[in-house]
Amino acid sequence: MEPTNVDILRERHRGSGDPYLEFLREPSMSAGLYRIPAGEPDRQTPHAEDELYVVTAGRGRIEIDGETYPVERGDVVFVERGVEHRFLDVEEDLETLVIFAPPEGSLDATG
């Protein structure tokens, strides 16, 4: 993959109509841009892969395994595979760079 820029990814994402835009898939990992508009719920369910979020815009909270933490631009959040998590109380459109290892969907629920 050639180097890219978050602004370029944002433009591609805006036109997709989907909250998640995968832009990288390799044997060891995948990455995408995930967006939740202010006031909207996060509809994701636990993943079978480890996940790293880098908040690139917005503000809200994330609940991980029953614990709640504030998140805003610049925050980095790790979620271990299979752990219940979701973003809550999105006050400003929330955008995150998401990295899965191994690639999202490559493992079943038992790993």
Rank of each mutant, 00 (worst) to 15 (best):
M1E: 12
E2S: 13
P3K: 15
P3V: 15
P3M: 15
T4L: 13
T4D: 13
N5E: 09
N5S: 10
V6L: 13
V6Q: 02
D7G: 02
L9Q: 09
R10F: 06
E11M: 10
R12E: 13
H13Y: 12
R14S: 15
G15S: 05
G15I: 03
S16E: 15
D18C: 14
P19A: 09
P19S: 09
P19I: 09
L21D: 04
E22H: 07
R25K: 13
P27A: 08
P27D: 05
S28A: 13
M29Q: 11
M29T: 09
A31W: 01
G32C: 08
L33V: 03
L33Q: 00
Y34Q: 03
P37S: 08
G39M: 07
P41N: 09
P41E: 09
D42F: 05
Q44A: 12
H47P: 03
H47D: 04
H47S: 02
H47G: 01
A48H: 05
A48N: 07
D50F: 06
E51M: 02
L52T: 10
Y53P: 01
Y53R: 00
Y53V: 01
V55E: 05
T56N: 10
T56F: 12
A57P: 09
G58H: 01
G60H: 05
R61V: 02
R61S: 08
I62H: 04
E63L: 11
I64Y: 01
E67D: 09
E67N: 06
T68S: 12
E72K: 12
E72D: 14
R73S: 14
R73G: 11
D75G: 03
D75C: 08
V76M: 09
V77T: 09
F78Y: 14
F78I: 13
V79L: 02
E80C: 13
R81I: 02
R81C: 04
R81G: 09
G82R: 01
V83T: 15
V83S: 15
V83M: 14
E84C: 10
E84S: 12
H85W: 03
R86G: 10
R86V: 06
D89I: 08
E92S: 02
T96E: 11
L97Y: 06
L97D: 03
L97I: 12
V98A: 07
F100V: 04
A101W: 08
P102V: 04
P103M: 13
P103D: 12
E104N: 14
G105P: 03
G105W: 03
G105K: 05
